[in-house]
Design a protein around this nucleic acid. Structure first.
Lengths: 219, 219
DNA sequence: AAGGCGCAGTGACAATGTCACATACGAACC
DNA sequence: GGTTCGTATGTGACATTGTCACTGCGCCTT
């Protein structure tokens, strides 16, 4: 078990709960691995030590939308909520990169919840954040314009990742719950204004200020 | 305090936790009352004893969408999640009818969470259901056709409420996150096929089987 | 070099949302 | 009975977004 995993474990199962640590398993998942599927029952509490899990919903016709991501040191709302209420997963989770996770069996989860205020705080803090993400996503999808949403996404990707951005139009569409053609058209507009440069599987943000101004429009 | 409230209180604060009951307050809210606003901090855990709270998001241009409802014996995800994570409310809640609720102060909530497995189960069961509602709502909004969604809504309303349905096109639009004109057009189509009868503020479902068939279409 | 496959471009059309009005209904009041 | 007023609904023109059916391009494999 690596250092980050051990630190997280010690934080969540502090003195007095050491005996629970042994029942927590560490797993290393390759990128692109499905962690849970829609309709699966929840049996374990999952904690991402290091990596990223994308939680998404798929439509029959191939369209999809990303609900939120679970990143380093976070846990998944759906798992938490379904674990005790015994609902099936309403969405699916896929690792985006190689991901290190801790698997806490349901009985251990319940026991820790009963005996550690720190553990409860962690669980609820995660719930709150993920739920907030989700509601903002609804708002965005229902009321937001696609150009604004795309501009925002491009800014986010260019700030946090390698430049130029390595992604396909289809991936952007899946992120936003839109269709590839729509994204292609928007990107062409952006490119026409000189805001971005387009290549196969590559997008270069050339005028971040312009994109940013568009991204700030709320309505 | 009425019987239903007392029963709920006894269930959630059983023998051993009687002392907490006294710190829970009962309130009776009139219909149309705003329970919490977007951006408000969460200070109390709210339990609906009898009534209904609609949780919704409003857009700048007047459009709105209902996320879910909290009904008899249920509690609100947002409140639960924000209470401990100290996030502000990302949506707002409004009573739809006169509503009886229990107000559990944050410290009492934390204490109960630490000492009662029954209380924890209740809280998480509610979380799971409400979160499931929310994800299904996202799916519906992003991938669903408006005619199908409207048919489903009309069936739900006609099954559970007084017939004919007493509602305006605007209310239906707000429920679905759509625009009034869109709903009016769809209803006119339904009426043209003889599926419904329309009046001012009133909709009569005439051919539930036809609506139901439409409502079952998933894609 | 020849396919094959994934990615992107395109035009026509359908569905939904927006805007600016016009109308119609019902309650309250003369 | 009429008048008036506020709310609910109808409507056409248009903008935006999604769908469909293709085309073409670039890169990899064989």
């Amino acid at each position: 078990m690596n250092r980050a995993a051990r630190a997280l474990l010690e934080r969540l199962f502090p003195t007095g709960l050491e005996h629970l640590r042994a029942r927590v398993e560490e797993v290393r998942l390759p990128a692109g691995q499905t962690v849970f599927r829609r309709g699966d029952p929840c049996r374990n509490y999952l904690l991402v030590v290091q990596g990223s899990v994308r939680v998404q919903v798929l439509a029959a016709n191939g369209r999809e939308i990303t609900l939120y991501r679970v990143r380093d040191g976070q846990s998944c709302v759906i798992t938490t909520a379904c674990l005790i209420s015994v609902e099936a997963y309403p969405a699916e989770g896929v690792t985006e990169v190689e991901t290190d996770a801790l698997v806490v069996p349901q009985p251990v989860f319940e026991q820790a919840l009963g005996s550690s205020a720190e553990f409860r705080r962690f669980v609820f803090a995660n719930q709150g954040q993920r739920l907030g993400d989700l509601i903002r996503r609804v708002e965005d999808v229902v009321f937001g314009r696609i150009d604004v949403r795309l501009a925002r996404l491009l800014m986010t990707l260019s700030e946090q990742g390698v430049r130029p951005i390595a992604t396909t139009h289809q991936q952007l569409a899946s992120e936003l719950g839109s269709a590839r053609e729509v994204i292609s058209r928007q990107l062409k507009q952006f490119a026409g204004r000189g805001w971005v440069g387009l290549g196969r599987g590559v997008i270069e943000v050339k005028m971040p200020a312009a994109l940013d101004e568009l991204a700030r429009q709320s309505d």
